[in-house]
Design a binder for these strands. Sequence first.
DNA 1: AATATTTATCGCAATATTACGATTAATTTG
DNA 2: CAAATTAATCGTAATATTGCGATAAATATT
Lengths: 111, 111
Amino acid sequence: MGATKEQLFTDHQTRLAAYAKALAHPARIAILQQLSKLDSCVCGDLVTDIGLAQATVSQHLKELKKAGLIQGTIEGVRVCYCINPEALTLLKKELNLLFDSLQSCASDECC
Amino acid sequence: MGATKEQLFTDHQTRLAAYAKALAHPARIAILQQLSKLDSCVCGDLVTDIGLAQATVSQHLKELKKAGLIQGTIEGVRVCYCINPEALTLLKKELNLLFDSLQSCASDECC
DNA sequence: AATATTTATCGCAATATTACGATTAATTTG
DNA sequence: CAAATTAATCGTAATATTGCGATAAATATT
């Protein structure tokens, strides 16, 4: 089928999975890191920095936007992309929730 | 194409993306959380807990194993799956590296 | 107005993911 | 040994992802 059965999972599980999906490609991690440098928060610069075709980078940006991790504001011909700090905070929170729930096992000898 | 151009990215970016990919499905997060409960660390139990078909759960377990996040030991007919604490520690480390590198932007006003 | 620049989108191809029924392989129980 | 249990694998179908060239849409420059 290829489509997730969402009704089986909690909101936390679904949200975290969505964030993880956004991070599940090295190009998108590279983009986030580039954007955090602030002086290159424009798609064209990202293209040369990252080494993928313009269309491909644009697609990765779209994914990151969909996850809410970045936002873009149009500045003339260009678009200024930047990281959404709120989303980053939320991501950290969801990750902490996960790690907390996995805590018990990490401390014990399971197998 | 559908295959990542790995040579463009750093080891950190590739490793983190691989971990994120493993977490990029709510079923796999659910599995990790179930496994951390320790008393249900067997595929059969996971199937009833999670509500997906046995083949599907087995496939998700395979993904988690591939990422190194879990390990399975055969116990007779059954398999005892459990979380790999070392991998969890590594994952946390890679995530911290990411968040550190994104720090500058989160504090400033980007857009 | 014509040209250049920049980014999004379209269309396509290759591959990957998700899901499940059926089957297989292994072990355990009767 | 036969039947039952358990988990992996196979085969298949539907859908998603990745990548890129080409094109479109918008703004800027000449």
